[in-house]
Amino acid sequence: MAKKITLAAALTAIASAAPAGNPMVGGAPMYEQKTIVENAVNSADHTTLVAAVKAADLVDTLNSDGPFTVFAPVNAAFAALPEGTVETLLKPENKAMLQKVLTAHVVAGDWSAKQIAEAARSSADGFYHFNAVSGDALSAQVKGNSVYIYDESGNASKITIADVDQSNGVIHVVNSVLVPK
């Protein structure tokens, strides 16, 4: 004889089997079925990044299949750069430089913060060394419960919101701009 299941029990089972979902970023929900760009345009904390991606003609790239891991600096990270830096980078004649800066925040593959942290913890020097799409060297280190990404100059950027899943990869929100040499 079949066992009767109540509607409440079925809904509870479905809810507990569903993934936790993405965190909100910049006051906006992030949808796993949307691309990196489709989600980023809704984040109030990433308007400078979105403007830069558009100016660098990288929208199509970041809308492609990927997968990509993007370390996405917030507006305050861009504002902390020396005065005039963002304005200079956004000029059409500096497009190649802007592309280099932005692609220094992108890694091929879909890397969760846990995977990055495990790679750093298991390395001999406590750092996971990898390359950005730009070709620039990046390193990851775990301090306490936080993961930090270092650029080639040794500047650290903390992952403040990890594992924002996208249809073509993952975004990790970071608190500073990674500057290539």
Score class of each variant (00 low, 15 high):
A119N: 02
M30L: 02
V50M: 10
V37M: 03
E32Q: 10
E118V: 15
V142K: 00
A124L: 09
T35Q: 00
T6P: 01
P19N: 08
N145F: 14
L7I: 06
H46K: 14
V74H: 01
P23E: 12
N42A: 12
A52R: 11
D57M: 08
G66L: 07
D136F: 13
F71N: 11
S139R: 08
V173P: 04
W111S: 06
F71V: 13
K3V: 10
T6Y: 14
Y150T: 01
D163W: 05
A44Q: 04
F130I: 01
I149C: 02
L81K: 08
A77Q: 10
P29L: 08
V179W: 10
Y128S: 10
G27E: 01
I159Q: 03
N175F: 15
A120M: 10
G26K: 04
E93N: 07
T35N: 02
M97Y: 08
D65L: 11
A18R: 09
T103H: 00
S43R: 08
N22D: 00
V53I: 15
A132Q: 03
I14M: 04
L58V: 12
M24I: 06
D45L: 08
I161V: 13
N94P: 10
T69N: 01
E118G: 15
T160S: 14
M24S: 05
A44W: 02
N155A: 10
G144Y: 04
S64Y: 14
A104S: 04
S176Y: 15
F127H: 12
N94L: 09
T160W: 00
L11W: 09
V177S: 06
V170I: 15
I171C: 02
P23L: 02
K95A: 08
N145R: 10
A124W: 03
G27C: 03
N75C: 11
K114E: 14
G109I: 02
N155T: 13
N175R: 11
T12K: 04
A8Y: 00
A15P: 03
L58T: 09
A44N: 07
A77E: 15
S157K: 14
Y150G: 01
A80Y: 15
A10V: 08
Q115H: 05
S139A: 09
T47N: 02
G84R: 09
F127N: 05
A108Q: 04
V107L: 03
S146P: 15
V74P: 05
K3A: 08
Q166P: 10
D163R: 09
S167Q: 12
